[in-house]
């Protein structure tokens, strides 16, 4: 069963991938190895397909570095559910096609390591027998995710969502 990786509020991009581990510094494209390398060293080693990150408010604040989102894209996580996102991280993750949801209550109700099942059709997550409805995201978010990424979207449609 996939599990929850729980994080708190204001997880900044230096905690997702510290600047010293940027591909620019290391020349290493295997970014997923460095996801949360100092914050949670067990993450990169143990994360499995279908796991979700469940975070607090303002997830991804700080730098514009897209390799933070890229490290999570290259990891096997299915997506992220946060109370809220920092704006540049939100754009970066969405552009790369990472499913993003918001929930005010989930982070306070669940524990790190709990098993989960995700229902994409109803945008809900079930943990320990209780089902949590996730907030619906704006239409352009679904349009981008459906095509795979913003690059796939622009290549296919020749314009931006909403243009």
């Amino acid at each position: 069963m996939p599990r929850i990786w729980k994080f708190g509020d204001d997880i900044d991009t230096d905690q997702v991938v510290p600047g010293r581990y940027a591909p620019y510094m290391t020349g290493d494209p295997e970014l997923q190895k460095y996801a949360f390398i100092e914050n949670r060293p067990d993450f990169a080693k143990q994360v499995k397909t279908g796991d979700w990150i469940v975070a607090g408010k303002n997830f991804g604040c700080g730098s514009s570095r897209e390799y933070a989102a890229q490290a999570l894209r290259k990891s096997p996580i299915a997506g992220i559910i946060a109370k809220s996102y920092a704006r540049i991280f939100f754009r970066n993750a969405l552009n790369l096609g990472i499913p993003l949801y918001e929930s005010d209550e989930l982070n306070d109700r669940v524990q790190d390591g709990q098993e989960l099942s995700f229902d994409a059709e109803h945008s809900s997550l079930t943990v320990d027998g209780k089902t949590y409805a996730l907030k619906p995201m704006p239409g352009f978010v679904h349009q981008i995710i459906r095509e795979g990424s913003i690059i796939d979207f622009v290549k296919k449609h020749g314009k931006f969502p909403g243009e």
Binding site: S63, E66, I88, N92, I150, I151
Partner: peptide, 26 residues
């Protein structure tokens, strides 16, 4: 700018904002 502190350009009344590499590449 591909750097979060691109908000600096607001000091002269430019709508300056930071984005990631995909947005800047686009």
């Amino acid at each position: 700018g591909s750097d979060s502190h691109s908000t600096a350009y607001g000091m002269v009344g430019t709508f300056g904002t930071g984005m990631g590499s995909t947005d800047v590449g686009l």
